Computed example of a mutant assay.
Amino acid sequence: MPFIDDLAFLLAFLAVISCGLMGGLFFAFSNFVMQALARLSPEAGIAAMQAINRTVLNRIFLGTFLGTTAACALLTLYAFVHWEVSGTFFLLLGSLLYLAGNFGVTLFCNVPRNNALAKLDAGNPDSSVPWRIYLDEWTRWNHVRTGTALAASAMLMIGLFLMLAMD
């Protein structure tokens, strides 16, 4: 396997792991975190989610989330340039799933909702209606992120297997 293919293999291997990690994180939010927050009073739920949104902006999460985005962007370029390499279709598909379904959805759907939530006064009774809307919409988009991250991990893994099979 040429050096560039070896690098792509390593990058795809790391992307498989990090897409799975992100999918697990999003799954936890979809499966129980948001449901638990919905059971709290609006005041407590808003305050808790505001705290989560501030806390998640840390080096580990951002490094994993943005590092996975960068890996998938590089794998997309690799796939277009090295289309003849076995497995590149799946590397491309997995990468595009992550880029659109995780980075894109986060940027255009979840983050704007988080920014709007940050402006809510948790103690104001009028915040309960926007909070309920937030819970519904944010969670719906988070389901998309969960599915696409896990599907991306699976597609990237198939691409890796095919790369190994042809080596």
Rank of each mutant, 00 (worst) to 15 (best):
M1C: 09
M1N: 08
I4Q: 11
I4H: 12
D5E: 13
D6C: 14
L11P: 05
L11F: 12
L11E: 14
L11D: 08
L11A: 15
A12I: 04
F13I: 02
A15H: 07
V16K: 00
I17G: 12
C19M: 11
C19R: 08
C19K: 03
G20E: 12
L21E: 03
M22Q: 03
L25C: 15
F26L: 13
A28F: 01
F29R: 01
F29D: 14
F29K: 00
N31M: 12
A36W: 09
L37I: 12
A38P: 00
R39M: 14
R39D: 07
S41G: 06
S41K: 09
P42T: 01
E43R: 14
A44Q: 14
A44C: 07
G45W: 06
A47K: 08
A47T: 09
Q50F: 04
Q50T: 06
Q50Y: 14
I52E: 03
R54W: 11
R54V: 13
T55K: 14
T55S: 15
V56I: 13
R59P: 15
I60E: 02
F61V: 10
F61R: 07
L62D: 12
L62E: 11
L62P: 11
L62Q: 10
T64G: 08
L66I: 12
G67L: 06
T69L: 15
A71Y: 05
A73N: 02
A73V: 10
T76Q: 01
Y78Q: 04
A79W: 11
F80H: 05
E84W: 12
E84S: 09
V85P: 00
G87A: 02
T88I: 07
F89H: 10
F89I: 09
F89V: 13
F89K: 10
F90S: 00
L93C: 09
L93Q: 03
L93H: 04
L93N: 00
G94I: 07
S95K: 03
L96W: 14
L96A: 04
L97C: 08
A100P: 05
A100H: 07
G101V: 04
G101I: 05
G101S: 05
G104Q: 08
G104Y: 06
G104D: 01
V105D: 01
T106K: 11
F108G: 10
F108H: 12
C109P: 02
V111D: 07
R113C: 02
R113F: 05
R113Q: 04
A116P: 03
A116M: 03
A116G: 13
A118Y: 06
K119P: 01
K119A: 14
L120Q: 00
D121H: 05
G123L: 01
N124Q: 11
N124F: 03
D126I: 09
W131P: 02
I133M: 13
L135Q: 12
L135Y: 02
E137D: 08
E137P: 01
R140V: 00
W141I: 09
V144M: 05
T146M: 09
A149H: 01
L150A: 06
L150G: 06
S153P: 01
A154N: 10
A154P: 04
M155R: 04
L156M: 07
F161Y: 10
F161T: 07
F161V: 15
L162R: 15
M163I: 15
M163N: 10
M163Y: 14
L164Y: 00
A165C: 01
D167C: 12
